[in-house]
Design a protein around this nucleic acid. Structure first.
Lengths: 142, 142
DNA sequence: TCCTATTAGATTGTATACAATCTAATAGTA
DNA sequence: TACTATTAGATTGTATACAATCTAATAGGA
């Protein structure tokens, strides 16, 4: 008999478990750089576009200032970035990579490839899965 | 030019975001029961099989005692379960639903259906996505 | 039986997530 | 211009995750 109150049946649990599983895979590659997964994705955004506000970073990662403020301060303490009060609008903080932060990009460049190698998944399946997830995210905003 | 250090390219971020997105969808349905998503999935396991150890629950959810111990104590404080030291092996704790915990199953019975309704996704797509995720989890253990 | 290894769960410490609230700055408007 | 609303980011409080360590109990030999 089909019971929707079964853990095994619920999509959410599969998403939750998959996310934790893959984030765990990043750990051995991020530990040497002394950063966490969330810090890593912040840096990914900054490596793409430097000098953005906390708000813009938050929109990109779908995280709020409650999560980002302490995290950015930790990256600042490690010397990877600076927090600069904007001149034009003093409510805003501009996050700016330091030399060290820019250099870190080079050290992190092989991580995506290493992750793909460490995952037991075909590239085509990974792409298909990612497309389906992005479709899901797109259709379920907020 | 394809850059693997782009956030948008990485499967992990899609998983991470999808998981947070769908867990957020549970909140309006779980808030009235005064439980969180993680507490809910613990109860899902117990509603399926009562009187299990912390270890067995942990294996089912892939969570360790560091996460589960405080969480189970909160559910105990709310009166949904009892923690009973096993007679045969005093290292083990048996988690046992109370009347209140059993009654909660009835109150939670419509949640899966409500979630499906609230998600903008076709059932067939949800099933396909879930199958792919479960395949991914199965192939990437630990 | 005695000793060592293992195991179950608890505890500690760090790092998110996220709701709710707060503060200071800016925008919008009468 | 004076007033109100909005906005950016910080702060507070709660609840995970998870590594590392600790403790007590059991298992498995010599």
């Amino acid at each position: 008999m089909f019971d929707p109150l079964k853990l095994d049946v619920q999509l959410c649990f599969s998403l939750y478990t998959s996310a934790r599983t893959i984030i765990r895979k990043y750990k051995p590659f991020l530990d040497p750089l002394n950063i966490t997964y969330t810090q890593y994705i912040c840096l990914l955004v900054l490596w793409e576009k430097d000098m953005i506000s906390v708000k813009e970073l938050g929109e990109r990662l779908m995280l709020d200032s409650g999560t980002l403020t302490p995290l950015i301060k930790k990256l600042e303490k490690q010397g990877y970035l600076k927090r600069v009060r904007s001149q034009s609008d003093e409510r805003m903080i501009s996050i700016e990579l330091t030399e060290l932060g820019i250099e870190l990009k080079e050290k992190a460049k092989d991580i995506p490839e290493s992750i793909v190698q460490s995952l037991n998944i075909e590239i085509s399946d990974a792409i298909e899965l990612k497309n389906r997830l992005d479709d899901f995210i797109r259709k379920n905003p907020e």
